[in-house]
């Protein structure tokens, strides 16, 4: 962990009084201005413009900037069943995805932390899915979870059949109620290694003597984990939830590649609906409204985190 460096980074606020005009300071600012302008335009300007579009009547190929007030939002929340369902799907996805990643990641990290032989090998295996794209993950898992037909099972269902575990067969991403869990499975495969890495780094940062002392006092391993290790891992949990949370709130690639998006499909999420309604249905204003709603969700997660992080830095 590099928390030590963080504190060095922002130790100063308005520094000592400048004695004389310093051209280098100007150069420094000039060097960073292009980036600031780019972010101002491409992030804040564009968000503002999307926000404006969401208040218009643009519902054809060409822009129609007539004012429509909050009608697009009202429609989405009051009348648009597909949107509401996609929010629900996304919420389910987020809860199960984060829960499973945290649980599995912690379990893997705790076991690996026992300093077993071949730790490096296992770590490499658990982490490699991070390196591939959600599109590859989606294509492969659609093949694995393809349920096949009643007569001819495929993918993992076939494996269950061959292993005599036929009762485990399931419709996976075709299940209207819980199909989203099949998408969660693929996402967890990709991201659980990340939480493992975070937890492992966190565990390694906890001084051994702390836990050793507790063990000497007669605490069981479970008690040590629960009362000492986990509380110390809390900042890691927060960071991880934020990172996984913002990935899951804007998930699009995975559902696209698994072909589980679309009206009344279990994997329909706002990110996918936004794309479809904008570029297939030509409902640009409605698509913009969905995008802004997604942004608000992500912002409520991220802004408090950013504020607390940088406030802590500034105080340090």
């Amino acid at each position: 962990m590099e928390s030590a460096s963080e504190t060095v980074a922002t130790r100063t606020s308005p520094a000592r009084p400048r004695r004389r005009f310093n051209p280098d300071r100007l150069i420094a600012i000039a060097m960073i201005i292009p980036s600031i302008v780019a972010i101002a335009v491409f992030v804040y300007g564009f968000i503002g413009w999307t926000g404006f579009i969401s208040l218009t009547k643009w519902a054809d190929l060409l822009p129609d900037y007539r004012w429509n007030g909050l009608e697009n939002y009202r429609r989405l929340f009051m009348d648009d069943e597909r949107f509401q369902q996609s929010l629900l799907n996304n919420a389910l996805f987020t809860v199960f995805f984060i829960g499973a990643c945290l649980g599995l990641g912690l379990l893997l990290a705790v076991v690996l932390d026992r300093k077993l032989r071949a730790e490096g090998l296992f770590r490499t295996i658990f982490l490699f899915p991070m390196a591939v794209s959600f599109i590859v993950t989606g294509v492969v898992w659609r093949w694995i979870l393809n349920p096949g037909t009643a007569n001819q099972a495929q993918g993992v269902n076939l494996l269950f059949d061959q292993m005599g575990l036929g009762f485990l067969k399931w419709d996976w991403f075709l299940d209207n109620q819980w199909g989203i869990l099949a998408v969660v499975l693929a996402a967890v495969w990709q991201m659980a290694g990340y939480t493992m890495a975070m937890f492992l780094a966190g565990l390694r940062a906890i001084p051994d003597d702390l836990r050793e002392a507790a063990r000497v006092d007669g605490a069981t391993e479970g008690q040590v984990l629960w009362h000492i290790t986990l509380p110390l891992l809390k900042p890691i949990v927060v960071s991880t939830v934020i990172i996984l949370g913002h990935i899951s709130l804007k998930i699009f690639d995975l559902t696209s590649a698994m072909k589980v998006g679309g009206a009344a499909k279990p994997g329909d999420v706002p990110g996918f609906y936004m794309y479809e309604t904008t570029f297939r249905g030509n409902y640009f204003a409605r698509g913009a409204a969905i995008a802004i709603i997604m942004l608000v969700f992500v912002a409520t997660l991220i802004i408090p985190y950013l504020i607390s992080t940088f406030r802590a830095e500034a105080e340090a």
Partner: peptide, 15 residues
């Protein structure tokens, strides 16, 4: 297109 899309969505919902 917008209408056709809405129609398809409604039918998919009905299924």
């Amino acid at each position: 297109e917008g209408w056709a899309t809405a129609y398809i969505d409604a039918v998919a919902g009905f299924v």
